[in-house]
Amino acid sequence: MPRTQEYVVDLSADERAELNALLASGTHKTRVLTRARCLLHADDGLTDDEVSQAVGCHPGTVGRYRKRYTEDGLAAINRRKADRVYERKLDGREEAHLIALACSDPPEGYSRWSLHLLAEHLVGLTEIDVESISHETVRQVLKKHGLHPHRSKSWVIEPNENASFVCKMEDVLDLYHEPYDPQRPVICFDESNKDLHKHVRDPLPARPGAVARYDYTYERNGTRNLFMMSEPLTGWRHVDVTKRRRKQEFVEQMRSLVDEHYPDAVRIRVVLDNLSSHQRYAFYEFLPPAEANRLLSKLEFHFTPEHGSWLNMAEIEFSALTTECLDRRIPDAATLRAEVAAWERTRNDDNSDIDWQFTTDDARIKLRQLYPTNHD
């Protein structure tokens, strides 16, 4: 038999309206909304077991909310008691020491500060008089000041004036915003690689109630290089899989670009990075002079600046290729070629072009710290 409820919830009309408005707003924390629902159901005459089933919490939790309501009224939906006085554990000076500590290098043997580590070192500081501090207090102080000592991010563009960077950047950006000209196509070119890993045991397929599973061990099968060519304005791309990416492979890629992919083009503008194999003289190393001169006469190279590979739209294609095709174990080169070719056909059939929005005018505003200012 259901037990008799020790604490009775009897909400007034105003209290019910306040709780219903709180639930309808959708702007409060989940625990507050749960407490409000418990009180409303309890006011409807439901037992603790019935309320727990309706709300999704433990019956003992419902009993505690009943008791707090009878003692504090609607203040029961808040975590803190209405008549309790909370004292700050840290004053402004001590918070300043905690902030300085969180912004400093972690102690030897640690890669980053943790909440417990900060609490431990703060207590040990001789400049402040704190006997103990909880990691939750540390978390609240860090949150208030927007500090995240466990996080970091890389930054590759130097924030100083860099005429070389902006010169190459504006050259590429201006090229991207020229009108489409089939006789003078703009091609983005880049390289990447893929490690070949073979399953040592057959994976288990997904089934209702269980995700697909595979053994964490695998067999290494070497690495293959991927050359990406992409014409962003038309939505065309082509990927070649090779064993290596030396200068001779680069020359062969450029030859196929001129003779196979764009034989009718008058001039092919190629956007590429500053890899050591991307050299004009390499054509003369591996081809007869007349052939090297013929190819170079149809190629116009536009190099992205150092630390500016994000300007190469071929990286966008590589990101799509990795996410949609390569993010899995591929056992051998033949499978890699087949899978990449299938991805290429599908993406080309969809005419997935790239709508590049960043312009030279945008760069002069958002990256203005890179532009020299000591003009005469």
Rank of each mutant, 00 (worst) to 15 (best):
L336F: 03
R368D: 14
V270A: 00
W155V: 13
E324Y: 02
R88E: 15
P331R: 08
E108T: 13
E120V: 14
D349G: 09
I133D: 08
V9L: 01
L311S: 15
F303T: 12
K153H: 10
N193S: 12
F165G: 04
L46Y: 12
I77E: 03
L115E: 10
W113M: 05
S114H: 07
E15T: 00
N374T: 14
H177A: 01
R337T: 04
D362M: 08
Q53R: 13
V85H: 02
E136C: 01
P208I: 07
T360R: 07
K168P: 01
N374S: 12
F250S: 07
P149M: 00
A75G: 11
H150M: 10
D273L: 09
D48T: 05
S154R: 14
Y214T: 13
Y371P: 13
Y180G: 04
H238T: 04
Y284S: 08
S192H: 05
E231L: 07
E317R: 13
A17L: 11
A54V: 02
P179G: 03
D259E: 11
A341K: 00
A210Q: 06
R66N: 13
K143W: 07
Y110L: 05
I133F: 10
A334L: 05
L257M: 07
R220K: 03
G109V: 06
E178I: 05
K194Q: 08
R255W: 07
K29Q: 15
R329T: 03
R139S: 11
E50M: 05
P159K: 13
Q140T: 15
L367C: 09
V156G: 10
R244I: 11
N351F: 12
N312Y: 13
E50P: 03
E231M: 05
H261C: 14
D215V: 02
Y214R: 09
E6A: 10
M228H: 08
C325N: 10
S276P: 01
Y214L: 11
N160S: 15
E108Y: 11
L311Q: 15
H116T: 14
N312G: 03
D361L: 05
R246E: 05
E285T: 01
R245K: 14
E71G: 00
G308K: 13
V340P: 00
F189Y: 14
L296C: 06
Y262F: 15
K144I: 03
Y216W: 03
H97W: 08
D49N: 14
G56Q: 01
V186W: 02
V211T: 09
L272N: 06
L275G: 14
M254C: 08
Y284I: 02
M254K: 00
R80V: 09
P149E: 01
R201M: 04
Q279G: 01
S277V: 11
P288W: 05
S309W: 06
A334Y: 00
R31N: 08
A314L: 07
A290W: 10
L336R: 04
F303A: 09
F250Q: 12
R37N: 11
P107H: 00
A338N: 12
S256D: 13
R35I: 02
E315F: 00
K366D: 14
V239F: 07
